[in-house]
């Protein structure tokens, strides 16, 4: 049984219900959790950048290795060298935060430019960009990253440039799609006919009014992607190198002790990765449902 109830008599059309009242509870939960994660990451990043850490992350204490959480003085315990896990986890955010932002910036900015060229100019630029996008899409990202690492150096910024570039087609397609939708209703042609200059149409009408929500969503998902790539590479030893902490190399370092029963030093960063990526993903999905409407509706 599903019920359909008539709301208060005659809802005035202009005073639409506020977003949070129209939304489904789960979407709000997603977004709420996501925002919490973003806030935590941001705060931790600042703490790490300013060096306000609960402990010196490099200080070893061989008398207290692989300590469990809630050990006095070490809220989240210590690793195999007796270093404070909490401090290292906070500092680990440095490893992906700025590089991730770089990747997002590259894919959003360059993707938008490509999308506008393809959708707005059309013609040959559309054809060429479509082929370029397909080429990028069909190339395995990890192979490309390893190739870059092999030919330059294992620098996370190099890697993130690759992540940013491979993230462009999604954004470009999204924007080209929005433009195609606006074209269908003759929106763009009507704007030109009125005499609006091209830059107003592109920046104000297309990007600002019709793509900003989608871009924020894609940026959020892009951050999740960047974290995943960084941690995978660090885990494999291609990313951030010891003793600088990164969640990926922390998992890797802790994994050696996992089978001996000291599962915590690797589980803590793994949980951090899981919770953070989940946070960005859910934020993206939740925002998508809230701002763009579900199932294409």
């Amino acid at each position: 049984m599903r019920s359909y109830v008539q709301g208060p008599a005659s809802v005035d059309e202009s005073s639409q219900l506020p977003l949070w009242r129209r939304a489904e509870t789960m979407d709000l939960v997603y977004v709420g959790y996501g925002l919490l994660v973003v806030a935590l990451v941001l705060a931790s990043y600042l703490l790490g950048a300013l060096g306000w850490l609960p402990h010196d992350p490099q200080a070893m204490n061989v008398g207290l290795i692989n300590a469990a959480p809630f050990t006095p003085g070490h809220l989240l315990g210590t690793d195999f060298l007796g270093r404070d896990l909490q401090a290292r986890l906070i500092l680990g955010i440095q490893a992906y935060f700025l590089p991730g932002l770089l990747a997002i910036t590259i894919s959003v900015v360059a993707g938008s430019v490509l999308g506008i060229l393809a959708g707005y100019r059309g013609g040959w630029s559309d054809t060429i960009i479509t082929y370029f996008d397909n080429l990028l899409d069909s190339f395995p990202r990890l192979v490309l990253i390893l190739l870059v690492i092999a030919s330059f150096k294992p620098d996370i910024y190099y890697v993130m440039v690759v992540v940013g570039i491979t993230g462009m087609p999604v954004i470009a397609n999204l924007i080209a799609g929005k433009i195609a939708f606006l074209r269908q209703t003759n929106f763009i042609e009507a704007a030109h006919a009125l005499g609006l200059p091209a830059h107003t149409v592109i920046l104000k009408h297309i990007l600002w009014f019709n793509c900003r929500a989608a871009l924020v969503i894609q940026a959020t998902l892009g951050m999740a992607e960047a974290i995943l790539v960084e941690t995978s590479l660090s885990y494999l030893g291609f990313g951030v190198q010891e003793p600088t902490p990164s969640w990926g190399n922390m998992v890797q370092a802790g994994a050696n002790y996992f089978l001996q029963g000291n599962f915590w030093p690797s589980t803590a960063p793994a949980l951090a990765i899981l919770a953070t990526i989940l946070g960005f993903q859910l934020l993206g999905d939740g925002l998508n449902n809230l701002l763009e409407g579900k199932r294409g509706k």
């Binding site: 019920s3 359909y4 109830v5």
Partner: peptide, 9 residues
């Protein structure tokens, strides 16, 4: 006037 509908779809 019908104000609410419950339906087992």
């Amino acid at each position: 006037r019908i104000m609410a509908v419950e339906k087992d779809d």
